[in-house]
Design a protein around this nucleic acid. Structure first.
Lengths: 114, 114
DNA sequence: ATATCACATTGAATAATTTTGATATGAGGT
DNA sequence: ACCTCATATCAAAATTATTCAATGTGATAT
């Protein structure tokens, strides 16, 4: 079973780890091959692979295969989504309590939210 | 030694855990006493205290003492800071590579960033 | 002063994440 | 086919985060 909380937590995990923040900083300079990231970071190859997987699964980073190489870059779409989600998650919501039976059309990006 | 990465990671830890996302959701409905949060969550009292500490340390939540009670609410300032930080961390930065010696006046919220 | 209530802290137990070394996979090149 | 190179995956170990029970603290009430 996967809750909406799990899904949201997965997105922010991208930003919860020092190594991943370092990687994102490098990717701010533009798309980079794993091999380039590897030489800039104090990380073994499986370690980098592990963190890249988390970053890609969060949607913050996109990967692109080119022959033997994997190129990574920051996803504009994923980043925008995360930014909006953070806003939503901290925005006052007067009706949080009353989970009314009558469901209204929603314009929230949070699944299952009225 | 505390790096800027650690500091940033600490902020986003608020959003990396299901329980904390649940708590934030409750706080979106307005300021709440720990005792109220406790009855809405599947968490023991020390567990709540543990998570509230992380939330307060992240700056996303503020606490206010009132006699025996502790009231918590989402910090507008902290939330805005986190939102802006997320944007910065995912914003393209053409000059990430060239850590030039000549330091220019910065308008970045990221410490030590040009 | 003692008692109680609300919450914080501690420490041990458990669970999740991260690191590391070994091995697997898949794309080229010879 | 075989060999390399780049990266992914696996499994064990190391580290870190979370839970839980017990105890501590500080505020109020009697």
């Amino acid at each position: 079973m996967s809750t909406v909380y799990e899904k949201h937590a997965r997105i922010f995990k991208a930003f919860c780890d020092e190594k991943r923040l370092r990687i994102l900083e490098l990717l701010r300079g533009g798309e980079k091959c794993a091999c380039v990231l590897l030489e800039q970071l104090e990380l073994g190859q499986p370690g980098l692979s592990y963190h890249m997987k988390i970053l890609v699964e969060s949607g913050i980073v996109e990967s692109r295969q080119e022959g033997k190489w994997t190129h990574y870059k920051i996803s504009e779409k994923g980043s925008a989504y995360a930014g909006n989600l953070l806003k939503e998650l901290t925005k006052p919501n007067a009706v949080t309590e009353e989970k009314t039976a009558a469901k209204s059309k929603s314009n929230s990006i949070i699944e299952g939210e009225a």
